[in-house]
């Protein structure tokens, strides 16, 4: 079957199977920032924006995206600024979980969240096994302009 979606601002017609998951379809079409971490919607690594709101793409049927707008890390111009802040802290490490974190944090910036406690609660679903989170928090504080 075919679905019409806007991905990163571009109109696309995607050929999918009815059982396919959005994560797999996005990867098949070359959006490699979308990575599989856990299969159960627990790790936040495959986060994309669905009509502007973050969702784990492993838990969405691709067919549901028909007529909707998807934004991956590749389509977020603000991603680079935050990526550079993470890099300055060495908070990328293996980098595998970073795109999901970046998509979610850029979303928080759009919501104008400036309190670290609130940001941490909203990012609780973005797990990381390498960094111990502290370096990420240093970068997040700078990116969101957290008030001290």
């Amino acid at each position: 079957m075919k679905i019409k979606v806007i991905i990163n601002g571009e109109k696309k017609v995607l050929d999918i199977e009815p059982h396919e998951i959005l994560l797999d379809v996005l990867r098949r079409y070359g959006y490699y920032s979308v990575r599989r971490g856990c299969d159960t919607g627990m790790c936040g690594i495959c986060t994309v924006l669905f009509d502007g709101k973050p969702v784990p793409s492993c838990s969405v049927f691709a067919a549901r995206a028909d007529g909707h707008e998807i934004t991956t890390l590749e389509g977020l111009p603000e991603a680079k600024e935050f990526a550079e802040l993470l890099a300055e802290e060495g908070a990328d490490q293996c980098g595998y979980c970073s795109p999901g974190l970046i998509v979610n944090t850029v979303y928080l910036k759009k919501l104008k969240i400036k309190k670290m406690d609130e940001a941490k609660i909203k990012l609780i679903g973005n797990l990381c096994r390498c960094t111990g989170y502290e370096g990420q928090h240093r970068a997040i504080a700078k990116f969101l302009g957290v008030e001290k």
């Binding site: 959006y31 490699y32 920032s33 979308v34 990575r35 991956t72 890390l73 590749e74 991603a79 680079k80 990526a83 550079e84 993470l86 890099a87 300055e88 060495g90 990328d92 293996c94 980098g95 595998y96 970073s98 795109p99 970046i102």
Partner: peptide
């Protein structure tokens, strides 16, 4: 030197 990792931006920005 506290420099970023050489592969940092490639990893962070979702390169294959």
């Amino acid at each position: 030197r506290k420099i970023p990792k050489k592969d940092a931006l490639g990893l962070l920005l979702g390169k294959p």
